[in-house]
């Protein structure tokens, strides 16, 4: 029974983390990078829920932690989208490589 095994869930969340990392390094737009961050955060939530189901002494703690991760992710997405608006209005570009005023 793979669905009742801790390591299965850990490998799935590891896949989500790796996909997020890959997308973070490969996307050439701020929105794409934001999407990758959401993937990584969701993988972290899945990890907490897996440990909560199989190892934790109190089943409520992992669920509350996952709820907080969801809240943090929503706040982060709101802030990131508005920062993308501000950067777009200032630089007229969607390419992260073009925003490099501090480099020179």
């Amino acid at each position: 029974m793979l669905s009742a095994n801790l390591n299965t869930y850990l490998v799935i969340s590891l896949f989500m983390l790796i996909l997020g990392l890959y997308g973070m390094l490969q996307h050439r737009s701020f929105i794409g990078m934001l999407i990758s961050i959401e993937l990584m955060l969701s993988g972290a939530g899945l990890n907490f829920m897996a440990f909560n189901r199989f190892l934790a002494p109190d089943p409520a703690i992992g669920q509350i932690f996952t709820l907080f991760i969801m809240g943090i992710a929503a706040a982060e997405a709101a802030i990131a989208v508005s920062i993308i608006f501000a950067v777009y209005r200032r630089y007229y570009t969607a390419d992260p490589a073009d925003v490099h005023d501090l480099r020179h």
Partner: peptide, 14 residues
């Protein structure tokens, strides 16, 4: 919420 907000981010900003 999050996906819809990102969709709005794409449609408004770009």
């Amino acid at each position: 919420a999050v996906c819809i907000m990102i969709v709005f981010g794409i449609m408004v900003g770009y």
